[in-house]
Deep mutational scan, measured.
Amino acid sequence: MAMNGTITTWFKDKGFGFIKDENGDNRYFHVIKVANPDLIKKDAAVTFEPTTNNKGLSAYAVKVVPL
């Protein structure tokens, strides 16, 4: 089920960042999981599918909501 969130941290040079989800949890995401990576920036609103990996909470099918 899709969730909403906000990008809180973005490491462009490393290709990953973190999203604060609607429950207040931080989720890892990688640029290859983003549909529109050219719009990635700190504080951008996103929708995504929540999941977990071996390191904890993460996100896939991430879409940055255009302003």
Rank of each mutant, 00 (worst) to 15 (best):
G15N: 07
V46I: 05
F29M: 02
I7P: 00
K14E: 07
K33R: 15
A45S: 11
I32Y: 14
T47S: 07
I32K: 15
V64H: 01
V34N: 04
K20M: 12
Y60H: 15
I40C: 07
V46N: 01
M1R: 13
T9H: 15
G5S: 01
T47I: 13
P37N: 04
L67W: 12
K20T: 14
L57G: 04
D43G: 15
A35T: 12
A2M: 13
V46D: 01
L67E: 14
N54D: 12
T52I: 09
F29D: 00
K55S: 08
S58Y: 08
D25F: 09
Y60K: 15
V64D: 01
P66K: 11
N23V: 07
L67T: 14
P66A: 13
G5T: 01
P50M: 04
N53A: 08
A35D: 11
L57D: 04
K14C: 10
Y28R: 03
Y60E: 15
T8G: 05
F18A: 02
Y60N: 15
N23S: 06
M1S: 15
D13W: 09
M1A: 12
T6E: 05
G24D: 05
T9K: 14
V31S: 07
H30L: 09
D21I: 02
V64Q: 00
I32W: 12
R27C: 03
M3W: 07
D25C: 10
I7K: 00
V65G: 06
G24M: 04
D38E: 14
G5K: 01
A45F: 13
T51K: 10
A59I: 03
V31Y: 11
T6N: 08
A44S: 07
D13G: 08
F29C: 02
A44W: 04
A45G: 07
N53H: 09
K12N: 08
M3A: 04
T51V: 14
N36F: 06
Y28N: 04
E22S: 09
I7D: 00
E22R: 06
G56I: 10
A44F: 05
T9C: 14
E49D: 06
T52N: 10
G5W: 02
K42T: 08
D13S: 12
N26E: 11
P66E: 14
F11Y: 12
L67H: 13
V65F: 10
W10P: 01
I7H: 00
T52V: 12
N23D: 05
R27E: 01
K12W: 08
M3R: 07
I32D: 15
N36Q: 06
T51L: 11
V46K: 01
G56L: 08
F11N: 07
T6A: 05
K12V: 09
I40D: 00
P66Q: 13
A59H: 02
T9N: 12
R27T: 01
F48R: 01
H30S: 12
D13E: 11
